[in-house]
């Protein structure tokens, strides 16, 4: 069952010059507080509800426009900064090894957003600047992932690996 869902992002509190509280008592000016509410409608999305419900990857994977095409390589690298996967969406070929390198000063980890899609990388493996960990992706499919310290499966520090035959 595929349903077209109008994705409406309600952006509350777009703060156009709004400010009211001088929390310290050292600012000479006070601007009027005002809160605008803006509704932004974005493009409609294809969502495979059955796949979401079953916690299984969908049959069809949509490759985002900002995906980095790294197909044809045996090994690819993904850098981690604080707090992001620099190559956030990559497309690779089956059998490619992916190495994450912590280039930041925070600890990070790599966890599949779809449970057991691949072996997670523990924080201790990516705890310090320069630390690395590798996973090999043998089967075609969609492998969204995240750092559980700085994100959730769909917010914050997220990444996506799309493996094509």
């Amino acid at each position: 069952m595929t349903t077209r869902v109008a994705f409406i992002a309600l952006i509350c509190s777009l703060f156009a010059g709004c400010a009211a509280d001088d929390p310290v008592g050292v600012f000479a000016g006070q601007r009027a507080a005002e809160t605008d509410t803006v509704v932004v409608e974005t493009d409609e999305l294809e969502i495979d509800l059955e796949a979401l419900a079953s916690d299984e990857p969908p049959d069809t994977v949509v490759i985002p426009d900002d995906a980095l095409d790294l197909t044809g390589f045996d090994a690819v690298d993904i850098d981690i900064q604080d707090n992001a996967f620099v190559q956030r969406v990559v497309v690779i070929s089956e059998g490619t090894s992916v190495t994450w390198t912590n280039q930041g000063r925070n600890e990070h980890n790599v966890r599949p957003a779809i449970s057991e899609a691949f072996d997670p990388i523990a924080t201790e493996e990516l705890a310090s600047k320069g630390s690395q960990a590798t996973r090999t992706f043998s089967a075609a499919g969609d492998y969204p992932y995240f750092c559980s310290i700085h994100g959730t499966a769909n917010r914050g520090q997220t990444g996506q690996i799309i493996v094509v035959p």
Partner: peptide
């Protein structure tokens, strides 16, 4: 959502 004001730091 009531934001701090920073005009004219004294």
């Amino acid at each position: 959502n009531v934001l701090p004001a920073f005009d004219g730091f004294d």
